[in-house]
């Protein structure tokens, strides 16, 4: 049992600014002392109501916001290039894609940023990633607005997976989709995990989803972990 990541006493407080001089008059304790480990190759489910700190936790895991105290230690043997090996899928598919960028540009951006493939292999790599999420190559010339929520989430998945990450954080990835689409994306996620040996951290408010996909579950409320179990 090796850990991809270990969270130790993580805290994130947001100051409440009041008055003309915006002095901090107290704090919102979004995450208030959270510790857990993410096992490699498994799906860790985190369930909580809205406002329990789930999205803040996702952003902390991706180091998009700095913690107030505590730490998130990533296993250096597994995670060698952080922005490549750790990726995230957001909740709102209608806000996760740059509305002015064509799908082709969206998908090659990670490759350009990390200078992974040469110009000749770009097309092949992009098409392969589209195929793995069940999309056709004629989406490449289109803009995000032409796609439904489910299709957009697939594009986001393709964007994240094109970097061949080790760890994928999913923040309510299916909550804004119809139930029938949720099932489809869930099945796709399971397939991808097996195919690419991924580790997932699946955050949601819907416990039934976690029953389907996760190996263990942590319950979060008001910034604290209040319980958990392994999925039988």
């Amino acid at each position: 049992m090796s850990l991809i990541a270990e969270v130790k006493n993580l805290k994130k407080y947001f100051p409440i600014e009041r008055g003309i001089f915006l002095k901090a008059r107290g704090f919102v304790r979004a995450i208030d002392g959270v510790s857990f480990g993410v096992e490699k190759g498994k799906t860790l489910g985190i369930v909580g109501k809205s406002g329990s700190g789930k999205t803040t936790l996702a952003k902390l895991l991706l180091r998009l916001i700095p913690p107030t105290s505590g730490e998130i230690i990533y296993n250096p043997e597994e995670i060698t290039n952080f922005r490549k090996d750790v990726q995230i899928i957001f909740q709102n598919p209608y806000q996760s894609l740059n509305p002015k960028m064509h799908i082709w540009d969206i998908l090659i951006e990670p490759l350009i940023v990390h200078r992974i493939v040469g110009k000749k292999e770009l097309r092949g790599t992009v098409e392969a990633s589209l195929e793995s999420v069940g999309l056709n190559e004629d989406v490449l010339s289109r803009l995000p607005i032409e796609f439904s929520g489910g299709q957009r989430q697939r594009i986001c998945l393709a964007r994240s997976l094109i970097l061949k990450p080790k760890f994928l954080v999913l923040d309510e990835p299916v909550s804004s989709l119809d139930l029938t689409r949720q099932v489809e994306i869930l099945d796709l996620l399971k397939e991808l995990k097996n195919k690419y040996c991924l580790t997932y951290c699946f955050i949601t408010h819907n416990l039934a989803l976690l029953r389907e996909i996760s190996d263990s579950v942590l319950v979060i409320d008001k910034g604290r972990i209040i319980g958990g179990s392994k999925n039988p």
Binding site: L179, T180, Q182, V183, L186, N206, L207, A208, R211, E212
Partner: peptide, 12 residues
């Protein structure tokens, strides 16, 4: 049928 199936699987 698809709707019922989806509900049974992941509906709350």
């Amino acid at each position: 049928k698809a709707l019922v199936e989806a509900f049974l699987k992941i509906g709350q």
